[in-house]
């Protein structure tokens, strides 16, 4: 299934009624790496969470491959995320008391038994490719770069078509950040996944196929790069 993104008349409001984000129209082809840049508080993260079906007070349509998240129930959206979307966050959000393997295989905890083994295998495979040892050690002692790699393995473990990353390098130093974004982009390209990464970091969006800029809740530029 090819999960192209099509947004129509998306509008997200704050509880006060103020418009936080307005996207009249946007299409992203499946397999594309899309960077989202813009100043703080411009609505980048709101945009990203809306794409995952986590937005509140929104109207319009966000369709992945024809499935409009906006008309789905919260449980149906959760099911869509479970099967099609992997997420990476700024501060990793790992379970500190669990090992790298257990963290990466977290999506297996709420999947059917048959799928559990597949997820665990995939998580281990990604960890291997990212050079993370996944013995019994808990991630408490891991460095930031190692943690974010575990988070990437978790995002890819359920083999989703889409990876959404929210400031994936913001908690890392320059050198680590560069290596991490390289790894992330390499992984999603190898597997032909769609990546949408929100970031301040030029090192992130210079590696993208296409970069949009959001300012004050609106897309102000849309640039396709030739890699």
């Amino acid at each position: 299934m090819s999960l192209d993104l099509k947004i129509d008349d998306l509008e997200v409001r704050a509880a006060s009624g103020r418009v936080l984000l307005s996207v009249p129209r946007l299409s992203v082809a499946a397999g594309m790496c899309l960077g989202v840049k813009g100043p703080s508080g411009a609505g980048k993260s709101t945009f990203l969470f809306s794409l995952a079906g986590l937005g509140a007070n929104s109207s319009g349509a966000i369709a992945w491959g024809g499935t409009d998240l906006m008309v789905l129930s919260p449980e149906a959206r959760a099911k869509f995320r479970r099967h099609h979307i992997g997420m990476v966050f700024q501060d990793f959000l790992l379970f500190e008391e669990l090992s790298a393997a257990a963290n990466a295989a977290l999506p297996g905890a709420y999947s059917r038994r048959a799928r559990q083994a597949v997820i665990a295998r995939k998580a281990g495979d990604v960890l291997d490719r990212l050079g993370i040892a996944h013995g019994g050690r808990t991630v408490e002692s891991f460095s930031g770069g190692e943690r974010q790699r575990v988070a990437i393995a978790r995002a890819l473990a359920a083999d989703p078509e889409i990876v959404l990353a929210d400031e994936p390098t913001a908690s890392l130093d320059r050198k680590t950040a560069d290596r991490l974004i390289e790894d992330l982009v390499r992984m999603v390209r190898e597997e032909g996944k769609t990546l949408i990464a929100v970031s301040h970091d030029p090192a992130v969006y210079t590696r993208m196929d296409r970069v949009i800029e959001i300012v004050d809740g609106a897309i102000v530029s849309d640039e396709v790069r030739d890699g």
């Binding site: 986590l54 099911k79 479970r82 979307i85 977290l106 709420y110």
Partner: peptide, 16 residues
């Protein structure tokens, strides 16, 4: 709360 929110963001069923 963050951990539970994480689970739900990743798509864990509410019942889980």
């Amino acid at each position: 709360a963050r951990r539970l929110a994480l689970l739900r963001a990743l798509g864990a069923p509410g019942r889980f």
